[in-house]
Design a binder for these strands. Structure first.
Lengths: 177, 177
DNA sequence: GGCCCCTCCTTGAACTTTAAACAAATGCCC
DNA sequence: GGGCATTTGTTTAAAGTTCAAGGAGGGGCC
């Protein structure tokens, strides 16, 4: 006699459970989210492409490098900080190197390793374009939100980010999850 | 005697005003935001690429079509709903058409016009993959947020989106702003 | 009708991203 | 010291996106 062990829905045998659809409210939130993100991303990409000659992601890479100890980071570390794959980073650095804004350097300790190093020229580009970029971010985001909303946004996005991080430690990105 | 007409900073003559840099707190918010968005976007892109064979944006297009009156929309309208350029949409629809999930149809009223129409096959793909996708969205976002946070997120992102919309009316996208 | 400007959508080239495969170096285990 | 899995970063090709240009139709104005 096989008795039904754990029946989630009365009468169900092996059917996939009814999907947990989004409610009306949830859908509205989700659509606002997607729209906002899309518009904002495009806006900042265009702003930076126009004023700095590079997409937003690339700009972010230069910022990370500028903040790093000797303006240099190992490729893998930079990739993790920027939340992108190493492959994508390889291409990006190649392009930035062609611009003369970054150059690669061998790692003495690990012959496989490479440092991406921000050049003076790259630093200069950053210095000149940073004001315009912050201003764009301010106008699009911070100027429109109350302090409470800003705080709230920070908390919310931190929660979402943490939920998607490959578990803290040195996991690269896509594998697992 | 030329008196300084409106002097924003004491002593300034024609220098660019000191940029309104982000405070520490604002920076933290902004970085959480960018990280969350990047991770979430990549996550959903991979989920849909794996389960539905298309990127998130394309999936969104099918959804818009599925919701439209006769499962069809004019190209321009679809582009505006999805917040993408017509160019991008042209390429996207071409790809979806090759998959047999959408087909184009001439507009009777306006010989320039084109409808993008969701095919039965396209609808079927949507039907089969929607549950997995909502589940992914739930796990990544809604399951982790309190009702208040969800509401807050909706409001915040709506504000940001509205600030970037080319002013309500029928403006396409990039022009102006 | 003829003209001009605007809208609709597409195209092709350049660029960026993704996915999968790979070589080299490291490190561990024995 | 000899494997063997892992880590590091790159490479290739295919897919997607952007940008600028363009063909074609609509619509107003004379």
């Amino acid at each position: 006699m096989k008795a039904p062990a754990s029946a989630p829905t009365p009468g169900s045998v092996a059917e996939p459970p009814e999907p947990r659809w989004l409610t009306q409210d949830e859908q509205r939130v989700w659509r606002s989210f997607m729209e906002g993100v899309t518009l904002l991303d495009d806006h900042l990409d265009r702003q930076l492409q126009r004023d700095a000659g590079m997409p937003h992601v690339y700009y972010g890479l230069l910022v990370k490098l500028a903040e790093a100890p000797r303006r240099r980071l190992r490729m893998t570390e930079l990739a993790m900080l920027a939340k992108i794959t190493r492959s994508r980073l390889s291409h990006a650095i190649a392009r930035l190197e062609k611009n003369g804004w970054v150059h690669r350097e061998d790692c003495p300790d690990d012959k496989r390793g490479q440092f991406a190093v921000l050049t003076d020229e790259g630093y200069e580009v950053l210095r000149q374009t940073a004001p315009g970029h912050v201003e764009a971010v301010r106008q699009a985001v911070f100027d429109r939100l109350t302090p409470e909303q800003q705080k709230s946004l920070g908390e919310i996005m931190r929660i979402i980010a943490e939920g998607l991080q490959p578990a803290e430690a040195g996991a690269d990105l896509p594998w697992l999850r």
